[in-house]
Deep mutational scan, measured.
Amino acid sequence: VIAMPSVRKYAREKGVDIRLVQGTGKNGRVLKEDIDAFLAGGA
């Protein structure tokens, strides 16, 4: 999974398994917005 360390930390704090999140950034990078969208109700 491609993600910046700050995004990985954010996901950990929110209790999200970053491997389950679909990245929308360049080359499938997971963004902070992707974590929020995942929490809001889905992949």
Score class of each variant (00 low, 15 high):
V1N: 08
V1R: 05
V1T: 10
I2R: 05
I2K: 07
I2H: 09
I2W: 03
I2D: 10
I2M: 06
I2L: 10
I2V: 12
I2T: 10
A3P: 05
A3F: 04
A3D: 05
A3G: 05
M4D: 15
M4S: 15
M4I: 12
M4A: 15
M4W: 15
M4V: 12
M4E: 15
M4Q: 14
P5W: 06
P5R: 14
P5F: 06
P5M: 11
P5E: 15
P5L: 11
P5A: 15
P5S: 14
S6G: 11
S6R: 08
S6F: 09
S6D: 14
S6W: 13
V7L: 05
V7W: 03
V7P: 03
V7F: 02
V7E: 06
V7R: 01
V7G: 02
R8V: 15
R8F: 15
R8K: 12
R8M: 15
R8H: 15
R8E: 12
R8Y: 15
K9D: 15
K9V: 09
K9P: 01
K9G: 06
K9R: 13
Y10D: 02
Y10Q: 02
Y10R: 02
Y10H: 04
Y10V: 02
Y10N: 01
Y10F: 04
Y10T: 02
Y10K: 02
A11T: 01
A11D: 01
A11E: 01
A11N: 00
A11R: 00
A11W: 02
A11Y: 01
R12E: 15
R12P: 01
R12C: 12
R12F: 15
R12W: 15
E13D: 13
E13V: 09
E13P: 01
E13A: 12
E13Y: 10
E13T: 09
K14M: 13
K14P: 00
K14T: 07
K14C: 07
K14A: 08
K14E: 05
G15E: 06
G15W: 05
G15F: 07
G15P: 01
G15Q: 08
G15D: 07
V16E: 00
V16I: 10
V16W: 01
V16S: 01
V16K: 01
V16P: 00
V16Q: 01
D17K: 04
D17S: 06
D17Y: 04
D17Q: 05
D17N: 09
D17H: 05
I18W: 07
I18N: 00
I18P: 04
I18M: 06
I18G: 01
I18E: 02
I18V: 07
I18K: 00
I18F: 04
R19Q: 10
R19M: 10
L20A: 10
L20P: 02
L20E: 10
L20I: 09
L20D: 09
L20W: 10
V21K: 00
V21D: 00
V21M: 04
V21F: 03
Q22T: 14
Q22G: 08
Q22M: 12
Q22D: 08
Q22S: 13
Q22H: 14
G23V: 03
G23I: 02
G23S: 04
G23F: 02
G23H: 03
T24S: 13
T24M: 05
T24G: 05
T24H: 06
T24V: 03
T24D: 02
G25L: 02
G25M: 03
G25A: 05
G25H: 03
G25F: 02
K26M: 11
K26F: 11
K26V: 12
K26A: 12
K26Q: 11
N27Q: 10
N27T: 06
N27H: 12
N27C: 07
N27A: 09
N27F: 11
N27M: 09
N27S: 09
G28Q: 06
G28S: 06
G28H: 07
G28D: 05
G28T: 04
R29F: 08
R29T: 10
R29G: 07
R29K: 09
V30E: 00
V30M: 03
V30W: 02
V30L: 05
L31V: 09
L31K: 09
L31T: 13
L31M: 11
L31I: 09
L31S: 10
L31D: 05
K32R: 12
K32T: 08
K32M: 12
K32P: 06
K32N: 06
K32W: 08
E33P: 08
E33T: 13
E33F: 08
E33V: 12
E33L: 10
D34N: 06
D34H: 02
D34R: 00
D34C: 00
D34T: 01
D34V: 00
D34A: 00
I35T: 00
I35F: 00
I35R: 00
I35W: 00
I35D: 00
I35G: 00
I35H: 00
I35L: 04
D36W: 04
D36Y: 04
D36M: 06
D36P: 01
D36L: 05
D36T: 05
A37R: 14
A37E: 09
A37Y: 09
A37I: 09
A37Q: 11
F38V: 08
F38R: 04
F38A: 07
F38I: 07
F38E: 03
F38W: 12
L39A: 07
L39W: 06
L39S: 06
L39D: 05
L39H: 06
L39V: 10
L39M: 10
A40L: 13
A40G: 11
A40Y: 10
A40I: 12
A40N: 13
A40E: 13
A40K: 13
A40S: 12
A40W: 10
G41Q: 14
G41R: 05
G41M: 15
G41K: 09
G41H: 13
G41A: 14
G41S: 14
G41E: 13
G42H: 14
G42Q: 15
G42Y: 12
G42L: 14
G42T: 13
G42P: 14
G42K: 12
A43M: 14
A43Y: 14
A43F: 14
A43Q: 14
A43W: 13
A43S: 13
